[in-house]
Design a protein around this nucleic acid. Structure first.
Lengths: 199, 199
DNA sequence: GTCTATAGGTGGATAGAC
DNA sequence: GTCTATCCACCTATAGAC
């Protein structure tokens, strides 16, 4: 727990995250991480068990960032506004952190890298999905959304925004040229969806 | 154009497609393709310029399969039924050909492998998106969907079904255990969406 | 803790004999 | 057209000296 040791570890982590943000998780190599950190490749193994352990730390950071975006939605005053803000923060996260979005929500299920939070696999929800379910529930209580299965409605909303965002990130929405045009389409689409969910 | 030559080429292609369906496009290697075809690794280069050329053929086949699914929707009698059938065929394709779905709709924009049909990048739409736009237009003409920007409505529908399918394929819809349960959610969701688009 | 050196593996692609 | 042999690049991970 000396300061020097943790500093090297921290340098490795930030170098790994920089590289990951540049080339994507699949093409991160320990050699390059070590190179950028000014240490040898072997030194990495004094701080992390293996490549996967390092990448899990890096991806976990991405998920914490995602959670921090969502939490901002709580600043809004009413359930309806919090729901809209939720969608807005989701969009902001995706546009501002496309690599993280990709790894968290678009990674291969049987990929080499096993990730953190969203992949719980037991019965419980991950905290961020639960956050959306809670927003849905309070909208139902406030009669902004028709009563029903909150989990299903949350899944429906999530799928809708994820569909838009992921097609955009994959470059398949050729018609939507720039970020501003996409944001317009996104907001319009969310408005229509929420309108359709009214009581 | 001898029969023998084309036969080897065909064996390479089917072996490549088998391997690709097993391990995904990223982990296809020419060595393994050659191994399965009973030829040496060098022989591959007599039939394909390089790895990318081979994989493009393989992925193009996946796209043709996708198109064939969509076309079945034309068998339905009315515009509304054709639209529902369209969504149904989309689901069938995804469930029955998850690897192809992944490569066509969930691949990295700046990936090593450049793909065929959907990535046109010029102003024109790819044929299958245009197919959906046409279904939307005829629904508008039949007053099943409210008049408006057909491209935008098509994008909205596509995003919605893609969101559901891709989250499912990524294993992120833990709550939806099996294919049957997912199909129920999918149909219910599509019904709600189309209901919201009525005039 | 960090280094050098190395083991042991993947892969794409090419040269030249047959 | 197909082969063997090879080059080259890149990677994860470990052993042992310092």
């Amino acid at each position: 727990m000396t300061i020097e040791g943790d500093e090297t570890r921290a340098r490795l982590l930030t170098a790994a995250r920089d590289l990951y943000l540049e080339v994507g998780s699949a093409r991160v190599s320990l050699r390059e991480v070590a190179r950028r950190s000014g240490v040898s490749a072997a030194a990495v193994y004094r701080h992390f068990d293996n490549k996967q352990a390092l990448l899990q730390q890096v991806c976990g950071e991405g998920f914490r960032i995602f959670a921090s975006y969502l939490m901002r939605a709580l600043a809004a005053a009413t359930p309806a506004e919090r729901m809209v803000s939720c969608a807005e923060q989701y969009l902001s996260f995706a546009v501002e952190n496309p690599r993280d979005y990709r790894v968290i929500f678009m990674s291969d299920a049987d990929d080499v890298i096993a990730l953190g939070p969203p992949h719980l696999d037991d019965g419980t929800h991950d905290p961020t999905f639960q956050f959306l379910v809670d927003r849905v529930k309070e909208c139902m209580a406030a009669k902004v959304i028709a009563r029903g299965d909150a989990d299903e409605v949350a899944t429906l909303i999530w799928s809708h925004v994820h569909g838009l965002v992921s097609l955009r990130l994959s470059g398949l929405l050729g018609r939507v040229g720039n970020d501003a045009a996409f944001a317009r389409l996104y907001r319009h689409s969310v408005d229509k969806l929420l309108a359709g969910l009214k009581p």
